[in-house]
Structures are given as structure tokens and as C-alpha cells.
Amino acid sequence: MTHSDITTSTTTTPGTVLVLGGTGKTGRRVVALLRERGVEVRAASRSGDTPFDWGDPATWGPALSGVSAVYVVGPEGSPSPTPGFVELAVATGVRRLVLLSARGTGTPGYLTDAVGAPHRESEAAVRSSGVVWTILRPGWFAQNFSEGVFLDGVRAGELSLPTGDGSAAFVDADDIAAVAVAALVEDGHDGEVYELSGPRALSVAEMLDEIAKAAGVRAAYVPVTPSAYRAGLEAQGVPAEEAAVWTEAMDPILTSREAPLTDGVRRALGRPPRDMADFARDAAAAGAWA
């Protein structure tokens, strides 16, 4: 380890931390890690302990009452409600914001407007908030294979996606949560934009190989065209607009724009990101593909 790999952040003592999306992929991990540190946490979601609905601003104020820091996971769709929420949060005394954004948000043409616009609006709101802020830009989550949109295909033994031979440096949600917690409870992350990736780029077929080695579950990757994928989603009852967004979101994998490795995990935590072999081993042990 070189000197530049060593974090110099010092732990601060936050008050109550509000975690939006507290039952989601990253949110529930952030909640768990904060509680391990003895931090008072308020897990907010439509179905969580603290009621919170992006579509119902009347739920925002009660969730923010007495909160000093917020992990912000905004909704899809533009215009984003995040700017209004950030304004209210600062007005009620929040002094620290950690935003979950997305890889490519700062790169013109990386994301389509439908995908990128709400992230850009959210980032602008956090940057101009006047309080301590940190932005996380993770790429595609490894957990999409174990608890997300790809899980059913893996379990069924066939995963059809419009990603061709493209690859992505899939990032473990455990790493995203660890970076978020560091930014929420430590000094030294103010104004940082952490681009988060895993330590190596893999195609979807190679990810399925890692899962097969760890879990003994072999799923075949079946490449399909974007139009066929979109039509398949619509045939399953997915609304046309949502099917289009999902299809467009696959393009950075298809074109390998998600492949380059980034240093956000190391800069924030002083260690390399978790490898996909470790992700697959732990997910298999937890029964993800049983």
C-alpha cells in the first residue's frame, strides 16, 4: 500500500441519519453498517419504519425532523423531486448530504436523457445546497444478478440481454454502502465525487461463469437485440416507456462504456473494491440462487 492509498479521514459523531430507500439494495446495507457503528438511523421508504414517499411531499418533513445527515436515493423520472427535498432538508437543519447518483452522469452522451436527467438534476441540487455533500456514481450493481432484475433469468438457467460481448466493471453494493457510510460519518469526503466500479471488467457471460463456479448454478447467456429485449419486456406487462428506459440502460454495457476501472472505492476507503468472485461466493452462501 502506498501513502496515497491511505485514507486520512477522521470519524465524526453524527446525529440521526436518515436513509432514503432504506429497504433497497444499498439503503438497507447503509442502515446495517450505520447501526453497527452505533449511529442512530432512520430507515425511510414507503414500506419502511419511517414512512417516506417521493410522490407525497407531506411525508418529507416528518422523516427529516431532527435529522443531521441524509443518504439520498432519488426516484427515476424528470423533473426530479430531489431539489425540493434538498431545499427542505437544509431548511430543517440537515448539514450533510450523500447522494446516490450513477456512473456517467457527468459525461455527455453516456446516459440517455431519460436515465441521466434526474441524476443531473439531483447532483446540481446537492452541489448548490450550501452544506457538506458527497456524490456516489456507481456503475451496474453486481446484485442485479442475485436480488435484482437479472435474478429470475439466472435461476431459470437462461439470461437474455441486449449486451452483446460488451463488459462492465460491476460493483458490489456492499462497497457502495461502505463508501456511503464513510461519507456520512467521517470527515474528509466533502465535495468528493466518487466514481465506483469493481476491480475488473466482465461480460454478462463471464459474470454467469463466476456464479456457476460459486453456486453450481449454470445459466446460459443469450444475446438478443435491443428491440427484441424491449418487446419481450412489454410482452411481460412492463409499460412501454419503462421498457424503453431499461433497454437504453443496457447500452453502456453493450458498448463497454462500463468497462473502465475507477478509483472511487480506493480513494474513499483505502482498499480495493470487492471482486466478483467474492460477491458470487457470498451471495451463493446466502442462498441467492438456491
Rank of each mutant, 00 (worst) to 15 (best):
Q143G: 00
P138I: 12
V31N: 08
P118I: 07
L34D: 13
V31H: 05
V179I: 07
I253R: 00
S203D: 13
G48L: 11
S101T: 04
A277C: 11
S128Y: 07
S101N: 05
P14V: 12
Y110S: 03
L261F: 08
T23D: 14
D263K: 06
R281G: 03
E186N: 12
A290Q: 14
S78P: 01
V132L: 13
H189K: 11
D152K: 09
V265A: 04
L159R: 01
T92S: 12
E242C: 05
G216M: 14
Q236Y: 02
R28S: 14
W60Q: 03
G188Q: 05
L261H: 06
G270E: 13
R29T: 10
G264Y: 03
S78N: 04
S68I: 11
L261E: 02
S256E: 00
E76W: 15
G61M: 00
E258K: 05
A288P: 00
T10F: 15
R35N: 11
P83H: 12
L100G: 03
S68C: 02
R271I: 11
P239H: 01
A124Y: 12
A214V: 06
F170Y: 15
A285G: 12
G157S: 06
V41E: 07
D53F: 03
A32D: 15
D174I: 03
D278P: 04
D175Y: 08
R257I: 08
H3P: 05
T12D: 13
A228V: 07
S197L: 04
S47G: 11
E210R: 12
F145A: 01
G139C: 08
V94N: 05
V126F: 00
M250W: 15
V70T: 07
T225V: 08
P57C: 05
P83Q: 08
A63S: 07
S68P: 02
F85S: 05
S197H: 08
A117Q: 13
P162L: 10
P118G: 12
V17P: 00
H119N: 02
L99F: 14
W133S: 07
G104C: 10
R96I: 04
A212K: 08
A142L: 08
D165G: 09
R46H: 07
S80A: 06
L20M: 13
A168R: 08
D263P: 01
L208M: 09
G109Q: 06
D56M: 02
Y194K: 09
A277M: 09
G157A: 06
V31L: 13
A63D: 09
P62S: 10
D165M: 06
T2L: 14
R281W: 06
D263R: 14
G24K: 02
W246Q: 06
T82H: 07
A243I: 02
R37Q: 14
V115Y: 15
V181D: 03
G109I: 00
T59K: 00
T12V: 12
G164T: 06
D165E: 14
G66C: 09
I176F: 04
I176C: 12
A205T: 14
E241V: 14
V193W: 09
Y194R: 12
V41M: 05
E195H: 12
R95V: 10
T105I: 05
P51F: 10
V39H: 04
V238T: 13
